[in-house]
Nucleic acid binder design. Structure first.
Lengths: 209, 209
DNA sequence: TCGTGATTTGACCAATCGGTCAAAGTGACG
DNA sequence: CGTCACTTTGACCGATTGGTCAAATCACGA
């Protein structure tokens, strides 16, 4: 029996080079997928971005889909963390404001991830619909209950918890996804300081009982 | 001199059939571009959606780009109308609430248009950047001035007018662009009644002096 | 240093893409 | 009812795409 040449596909990377190259490919893929969408991205562009030849890239990942899938999995693993961190035991207004702040930080620090997600949702979420209806929905249900309790206790003003959460998603992700538009209107200034102040004021006013 | 067979390209349509087919193609193109993005859309899919053969489609529009361009032009011609209608002479809070209402109606009634726009912005607005930095920016500048005056007159609470407008865009368009996610979380219920109530309450609370 | 598995690449392939073209079909009007 | 412009289509083309493969090269432990 001859040992197969063991392509770097499946399973955990075994060598240092595999670990490094795999990571570089994911970074390149994230850049290209975020900018062009799944169908708009080409293996040649991803390979070029990663400084590899196309066959070499396919040595580390078996297909374009595999790269995309890995990126989405990795994203979803942390995408909901800011909401998970909403603490039922904390001060309601400050907890929600802190959540807004974390989400806005993510838009500023990880705009490619935000656009990757936006692209996927815009296309009807073909690859992550189960997650939306599963983990995402149950997390939002849980946190909505927390918010409803805060309202019932008179600790924040009465608002629909679901639409409150949607509003936080919309407002914070807008600065990453519609960045070009925001910068065009603001004449290329960094929008984030202003956005933070605005959102802080908005939710403070909306929620204070 | 032989008269050329006059392709149905350039210039205004001359016959009834041209008018009808051109419109059907635009509708098909809007559906496909909104769902798949520019690069993801194929002429075959647009042609199928319009019930035409590919060469027949290309008899009416010279290229895929031409269809996309026409759709964007047509969209931009009305996209800013809701903001243009903001009346400096009206009651400030009611004017802004009416603007929010108009934008939310557009998300509900024209989700394909919203997604077409979102796709274009996500990709860096390669075809409409001049419009963003031109017409859009100057319109927003104008209306921001109006809002600033309202604030100076003490008729609404002090907020950054630019981020206020961004927030209206983000919140309303979110319901069209991220429709799948919203419906997944709300368990397929129609989100619009709830959204309207939420946004009404939000901006009333934010803006009342 | 040497062999063996890990890595890299040039050449290649089938499928799909946007687009062309010549020829065939259709309809409205004199 | 004939005709001529308008409309439709099947066959085709070159370019690009995702992906394969065999051979060449590299790196590292014994």
């Amino acid at each position: 029996m001859t040992k197969k040449p063991a392509r770097a596909e499946k399973s955990a990377p075994r060598t240092r080079i595999q670990r490094e190259k795999r990571e570089e490919i994911l970074q390149a893929g994230l850049t290209v997928f975020a900018a062009e969408g799944f169908r708009g991205a080409t293996l040649d562009r991803i390979a070029a971005e990663a400084g590899l030849s196309k066959p070499n890239l396919l040595y580390y990942y078996p297909s374009k889909e595999a790269i995309h899938e890995t990126l989405l999995e990795r994203l979803l693993a942390t995408w909901l963390d800011p909401l998970r961190a909403l603490d039922p035991a904390g001060d309601p207004v400050e907890e929600i404001l802190a959540y807004v702040g974390r989400k806005l930080d993510m838009s500023r620090d990880f705009p490619r991830e935000s656009r990757l997600f936006a692209n996927e949702i815009l296309r009807g979420a073909p690859r992550i619909e189960p997650v939306l209806k599963g983990d995402l929905k149950s997390l939002v249900d849980t946190k909505s209950k927390v918010i409803r309790d805060w309202i019932a206790a008179g600790r924040i003003a009465p608002v629909d918890p679901y639409h409150l959460i949607f509003s936080i998603w919309a407002l914070t992700q807008h600065y990453a996804d519609f960045d070009v538009q925001v910068r065009a209107v603001l004449d290329a200034a960094d929008p984030y300081p202003g956005a933070e102040a605005f959102l802080d004021g908005l939710y403070r006013r909306l929620l204070s009982p």
